[in-house]
Amino acid sequence: MLIVPCPNCGPRNSADMRYGGESHSRPDPDSTPIEEWRNYLYMHDNPAGWLKETWYCGSGCRRYFTTERNTVTNQFREPAINYPEPGGSQ
């Protein structure tokens, strides 16, 4: 049971969270060559070390946020950052 640092709720047990995997943004489907698109779909970074990833605080604030975790030690490091507020400016 990890303690995951939610930027809104503070440190919470990982049972409250849903893991979202490596943080990556969706390429523009119209301008992206299919090879790159498939990379986005299937190829994710899998480092033995620090990984920027997404968590969903499903039992708390229900916000998606990013943070960095060391995949060897499971330690988290700052910062844990919310995705922009829904409805906020682009």
Binding site: S25, R26, T54, R63, Y64, Y83, P84, E85, P86, G87, G88, S89, Q90
Partner: peptide, 8 residues
């Protein structure tokens, strides 16, 4: 939240 945060 992640891809279309500017949508209301």
């Amino acid at each position: 939240q992640t891809e279309r945060p500017h949508w209301q």
